[in-house]
Design a protein around this nucleic acid. Structure first.
Length: 502
RNA sequence: GGUCCCAUCGUCUAGUGGCCUAGGACGUCGGCCUCUCACGCCGAAAACAGGGGUUCGACUCCCCUUGGGACCGCCA
């Protein structure tokens, strides 16, 4: 089997967004599947828009996602001389020509064409220049760009796209495109081809927005006596209004970095992204790295664009519900040790990390995480919604407090009384705590549910959560008793709040 | 305006002429479980854009219409 070499060539003009990440993922998967090479090449020829931060952002984003590359990062700008030499060569061989038309002229013609509802194509003015005319313009010192001379042939040129099938275009409809600016810097179309030839790229997997470039690039391959690679044009990712997603119009929700900050598990994001525009042909939707590499194929990439189902301002779904669901799935099924490793930084940031979680309290830490994770959607939830399990300075959800505590005035006396009952319980486990609580409820002639829901609010700060006895055991006798004893204060604070509010 | 691409539930999708009464997933709704919520399990509503062909038979093939998208830079 011939070697597979693919590349991901982002232009560093903004942070890695999920569309770009998806392109990288598809390339990476294809390389891994075929035991080939995946090259990272930063296309920074547009010096004005390229930034250092952006380059770092792309590298960090890919690294975080677990997308590793075998070569690079290469920087396109480092090969500028080669690009120029190739442009020169094309010019010398008569496969390209100098165009002296000014930007203003071109712009005027374009506008005119649009007004007359004609095609906006370069009219070939300078292609028809005689050697004398060219010499004259050069003598005047007029600036020029270099345009590729599209062969004058009848019929069509085409290629077999791995996802779209046969794509063809009539020669007469291809304009003489610019390959070098008037400042002597070659353009993307050329650089890209030169780099891909040098890197011996065998397959180009990119977005369908590049389709019109492809035909022109194939012409370039031909002019450079190189064999074009196989092309596969992936569907685009659009928003609900069917617009191409972009950082500019959609903000952070399309930035890979943001998912990291929001507590996404990197592989969960990869898993979600890969299902946008590809499927294995089976019902499987959750894949391990190995499974995905095994299952991946270019042939099963969809032709049609997919929609990133995100509604701005929805409090419940801060991103595509399916992405959240996949993340939550990993959250509750991954080995708990892995989860623990992933939340450490956030715990430190939130001031609730204890080094003993990696020492003598490790077992408790892991079992507690395991206890609470089934309700969570992101890694952040552990330190937010689960704060009461790890610290004393947590906030009680106002809704929980109102519904399960304040609406039951009897709890003001009952819960501290229960605390006293709990003090001598020995040992402190599921059975003994349940026994104590139920007996107490019975003796007090209150429904156990009322006590339990009140307790949940007070000791875990939440309206919902694991079974209360699990919570009690996880949080520990001391803290439980201390929190229950504090119940009257909660009533008083609420009373004051009402007084001052009214 | 030109060229090109695309078209199945709200969203991601299966489907390559009969297996389709169109399957799965997410989301939504209902039920079970239950101290709450989640998980899990069970169930419901929900789609072949329209019109012509081809064929014994079209979601599947062809054409047209409609709709959506991309590109049309001395950006990448």
């Amino acid at each position: 089997m011939s070697e597979v070499i693919v590349r991901f060539p982002p232009s560093p003009t903004g942070y890695l967004h999920i569309g770009g990440a998806r392109t990288a993922i598809f390339n990476w998967l294809f390389a891994r599947k075929h035991k080939g090479k995946f090259i990272l090449r930063i296309e920074d020829t547009d010096a004005e828009r390229s930034t250092k931060e952006s380059i770092q952002g792309i590298i960090d984003g890919l690294t975080w996602l677990g997308i590793d590359w075998d070569e690079g990062p290469y920087f396109q700008s480092e090969f500028a001389d080669e690009h120029k030499a190739v442009a020169r060569k094309l010019l010398d061989e008569g496969k390209a020509y100098k165009c002296f038309c000014s930007k203003e002229e071109l712009e005027a013609r374009r506008k005119q064409a649009l007004k007359e509802k004609r095609d906006i194509k370069y009219d070939g003015t300078c292609r028809r220049l005689s050697p004398e005319e060219i010499a004259a313009k050069e003598a005047q010192g007029l600036p020029y760009v270099v345009r590729f001379k599209v062969p004058e042939r009848q019929g069509k040129i085409g290629y077999n796209d791995k996802v779209l099938g046969r794509i063809e275009k009539d020669y007469s409809e291809i304009e003489d495109f610019v390959i070098m600016r008037s400042n002597g810097k070659p353009l993307y179309l050329l650089c890209n081809v030169v780099d891909d030839i040098r890197d011996r790229i065998t397959h180009i997997i990119r977005g369908q927005d590049h389709m019109s470039n492809t035909i022109r690039q194939i012409l370039l391959y031909e002019a450079l006596d190189a064999r074009p690679p196989v092309f596969a044009h992936m569907p685009l990712t659009l928003d609900l209004k069917k617009r191409k997603i972009s950082k500019r119009t959609h903000g952070e929700v399309v930035s890979v970095q943001w998912y990291r900050e929001m507590g996404f598990i990197p592989w969960a994001l990869v898993n979600f992204l890969v299902m946008l525009g590809w499927n294995p042909g089976t019902d499987q939707e959750i894949f391990s790295r190995e499974e995905l590499i095994q299952a991946f194929s270019l042939e099963r990439i969809n032709k049609s664009n997919s929609v990133f189902n995100y509604r701005k301002g929805d409090p419940k779904f801060f991103t595509d519900p399916k992405a959240i669901n996949i993340n939550a799935h990993y959250l509750r099924t991954m080995p708990i040790e892995d989860i623990a490793a992933m939340i450490k930084d956030d715990f430190i940031k939130e001031g609730i990390w204890d080094n003993a979680y990696e020492g003598e309290k490790r077992e408790w830490f892991l079992s507690t995480l395991d206890l609470i994770r089934s309700r969570f959607h992101t890694l952040r939830d552990f330190a937010r919604l689960g704060r009461a399990y790890f610290a004393d300075d947590f906030e009680i959800d106002p809704k929980a407090l109102k519904k399960n505590v304040l609406k039951r005035p009897e709890l003001k006396e009952l819960l501290p009384a229960l605390a006293a009952e709990l003090e001598p319980v020995e040992p402190w486990d599921l059975e003994t705590t349940e026994d104590a609580v139920r007996k107490f409820a019975e003796a007090s002639q209150v429904k156990a549910g009322i006590i339990i829901n009140g307790m949940r609010a007070i000791i875990s700060g939440q309206l919902k959560g694991p079974g209360i006895f699990d919570v009690m055991v996880a949080i520990g006798r001391e803290r439980v008793i201390q929190r229950l004893k504090n119940t009257p204060n909660l009533f008083e604070m609420a009373g004051q709040g009402q007084a001052s509010g009214g």
